[in-house]
Each structure stands twice: as C-alpha cells, then as structure tokens.
Amino acid sequence: MSTERNSGGAAAVVVATVIGIGLMMGGMYVSLNVHLGFVEAMNKSGIPFDPGKTVSMMGVLLILFPVIRIFFIAPLAAAIGGRTSELERTFAEAEELRGEMTKMRSEYEHRLVQTEADARERIQAEIKKAQELGQALRAEAASHADELRRKAEREIEAEKNRVLTELRLHVVNLSLGATEKLLGENMDSATNRKLVQDFVDKAGAAR
C-alpha cells in the first residue's frame, strides 16, 4: 500500500506539475487577452473576478499540494508518528515493568508470609520439643528422686532393724549378766537363757 502510494505519489507529482504549468500559462493568456462579457459585468457590479487568475492559481495550488506534502507534511507526520509510537513503546515498557514489579512484590510477600509461617512452625516445634524434653527431664528427675528416697528409706529401715537387733542382743546380754549376778551360779544357764529370751521377745512384741 505505502510503496504503491509512493510510486503513485511521484507520478502524481509529475502529472500535477505538468498540468499546473499548463494551467499557469493558460491562465496568463486568458487574463491578458480574453475578455469575457459576464466577467466584465461581474466586475462592474462589484465582484472582482478574473478567470485567468483563477486558472493560474489552480495551477500553482496543484503544484503546491504535492510539494508541501513531500517537503514538510510527510516528515512532520513521520516525526509525530515516530514520537507517538516511541512514547507508546516506552509506556508499554513501563507498564510491563510495573506488572513485573507487582508480580515480584506479590511473590516476595507470599514468600515472606510463607517464611514467617515456617519460622513460627519451627519455633513452635522447638518449643514443643523443649517442653517435652523438660517434662521428660522433670519426670526422670522425679523418678530418680523417688528412687533415692526409697533407697534411703530402705537403708533407714535396715539400719533400724540392725540397731534393734543389736539393741536386743545387748539387752539380753545385759539382763543375763544382771540376773547372773542376782541369782548366782546355780541357775541353769540354758533354761535361764530361754526364759530371758522369751521375756525379751514378749517385751519386744509388747513394744
């Protein structure tokens, strides 16, 4: 389309120039030599009309149109169009960049949120783990303490028994000695011992 118009434009310029020059010449001839009746009448009635001038000026304008179009309007239109398209391109680029930025920002925010959630989750997990560990430690410690206490109680019990046994033996011995001294040698040691033993047992049972 554009190339066709360009070639057509060049041909049109040549044609217009030829016709225009012809019209100029014809107009000059008409203006100088031909005197038409109705033109005289018009001039007399106040309308300054001269067909020769009109014809020549038509020639001038015919040449003028393509010349000005090629000389000025085409470059102007090209410049304005180029500028507009450049502006549009810049604008489109900016728009695209903005869209990208928006996308990136949303992505970043999304990632931020995710990271935060992750971190919170992990912290929660750690806290839970720590709590569990603490509980386990506490339980262990408690059981350990229990065990220690039981052991201590057992030891105390054993010690008490031992001390009691010792005490009983000692009491038996003491009471035997005292009875010997009290009753003399005539006493059958075996029978007495048994008697005392019984007594001590009774005393122990009564105690």
Binding site: I47, P48, F49, D50, P51, G52, K53, T54, V55, S56, M57, M58, V60, L61, L62, F65
Partner: peptide, 11 residues
C-alpha cells in the same frame, strides 16, 4: 482576492 479563493474552492 476572489479569483484566488475561487481557485482554491475549485481545487
């Protein structure tokens, strides 16, 4: 000038 204007109008 009427002639010039007429030429323009004709064109």
């Amino acid at each position: 000038d009427l002639s010039f204007n007429f030429a323009m109008a004709l064109i």
